[in-house]
Nucleic acid binder design. Structure first.
Lengths: 161, 161
DNA sequence: GATTTTACGTCAGCCTTGTTGACTTTCCAA
DNA sequence: TTGGAAAGTCAACAAGGCTGACGTAAAATC
């Protein structure tokens, strides 16, 4: 292989890069808007959504693992998690093997709200995928993955599918 | 054309959609992390970055137009804009034709900080684009655009290039 | 067995950035 | 000339980040 690993060189102008950056900004707003509307009715915020999502994705995950995935402090996560436990959406069980750990699970109501939020968000993503077509979807995923920090790429790959 | 507009039907599983959603989440974190580090040194936040970015992109834009693009309240924007004007990064000029309007421009120091932030963010995007390749980039942009709200798509298209 | 480290929770306080509501000033346009 | 739009300001509040300090229990290590 040569120095360019056989890849085409990309000559990206400032404007092309700016448009990509702006696309991320506007798209992320759309991406969060549907769940946000639902959460508002429950008195929750995006932080609650993220917690519900990742607890659902990794049932039995520990607080520490969740902290890594979410990239926030334990105080911040704890505030959110506490309300979810109090409201009966999340179950926090003391670990069997290691009793210092808490293993998190969604309760039936937690599953129900998570499902509602996921449906709303998935509807938009599905529509965008349909409009853009399968090749575009593959490219979308490829670029997003390359945009993550190495640590988050690891978390990303550790998730199902 | 038939009912499917000649497009391939996509059978997207729950897991495929979830992975796309998670990719957006992790990628957006990477996307904002480099500018965030710079902003911290200046005592600014993401809101300041957004204001600098869009004032730079549309020099002379009015506060009202910026409100639409950013999707926040005027009180929220005003707080950010005021500090930028006070710190000499943004110039707010009373309109010639309509003196109620304020036209916003970056000062030389504003241009300088915006450039620094853009360089950091663009470096990551450029690297991701290079890793993913040109076809992936096209798909990335296509999906992001389809994910935006209609109103934001209009703003997006109104921007240069 | 004693000590250190880890996991988790909690209290207190701070910051940014979003919100609503009320009010004023300016000034264009009908 | 007057109504309403554009802009700005003040006040108050909330979500959700943050740091720092402290406590407890359990595991790991010396």
């Amino acid at each position: 292989m040569d120095g360019h690993s056989g890849e085409k060189l990309l000559y990206l102008t400032d404007e092309q890069l700016r448009k990509g950056i702006e696309a991320m900004f506007f798209a992320y707003r759309g991406f969060t808007s549907d769940p946000d509307r639902i959460l508002e009715k429950y008195g929750y915020g995006r932080a609650h959504h993220r917690a519900l999502h990742f607890v659902n994705r990794s049932p039995g995950t520990t607080v520490n693992n969740l902290l890594g995935i979410l990239g926030v402090t334990k105080q911040s996560l704890n505030r959110v998690l506490r309300t979810l436990v109090e409201d009966g959406l999340v179950d926090s069980r003391v670990g069997q093997r290691d009793k210092r750990e808490r293993h998190l699970h969604l309760t039936p109501s937690g599953v129900s709200l998570e499902r509602k939020l996921a449906d709303a968000q998935q509807a938009r993503v599905r529509a965008a995928y349909r409009d853009a077509g399968p090749e575009a979807v593959a490219g979308f995923r490829k670029v997003l993955e390359a945009m993550m920090d190495a640590e988050n790429q690891k978390y990303f790959h550790s998730l199902k599918e």
